[in-house]
Amino acid sequence: MEFCPNCGKMLMPKKGMIKCGCGYEKSLTDDDIEKQYHMEGETKPQSKVIVTDNKNVALPTTRITCYKCGGTKGYWWTVQTRSADEAPTNFIRCAKCGNTWRSSN
């Protein structure tokens, strides 16, 4: 890795040259590029993707009574729907029919 001797900016090679905005230029050989700019390291391990459906929801649950179907299990989450100085809005979704509403706290 090289830095501009005039202004100190980090220089990256492009088409066998390093150029700086201040006017500094230098030619590089393929060997220079391989030694100074070829980077090896650990690759990020592949992440496993979890596929879910309506029966496998990754939200906290609570006991509710759905006004549409009478279901007793609900999923809940909180969203800041207004300005930061106001209380967040809590939502509940019936696990049985999917009906969603705002909770009244």
Score class of each variant (00 low, 15 high):
V79R: 10
M1W: 05
P13C: 02
G70H: 03
A84H: 01
G98K: 01
I92N: 02
C97F: 01
T65V: 13
T61F: 09
T62V: 14
Y75G: 05
T62C: 12
Y37V: 04
N90F: 09
W77M: 09
E86I: 05
V57Y: 00
K73T: 15
T72E: 10
A84V: 12
Q46Y: 09
Y24T: 04
G16H: 04
V57A: 02
G70K: 02
K73R: 12
P88T: 04
R102S: 12
T43Q: 14
L28R: 05
D85R: 08
K26S: 06
D53G: 04
T89C: 00
V57H: 00
E25A: 06
K55M: 12
G70S: 05
N90P: 00
S103Q: 13
K15I: 08
S47K: 14
K55A: 14
D53H: 01
C69E: 02
K55G: 08
K44Q: 13
G23H: 00
V49I: 15
T100Y: 00
C97V: 06
S27K: 15
N6C: 10
I33L: 01
W101C: 06
I92A: 10
I18V: 15
Q36V: 08
G70C: 06
M39G: 08
K15L: 14
I64F: 06
Y75Q: 06
K15G: 09
W101G: 01
R102T: 14
C22I: 05
T62E: 13
C69A: 07
P88K: 01
T65A: 13
M1C: 09
S83F: 07
C66E: 04
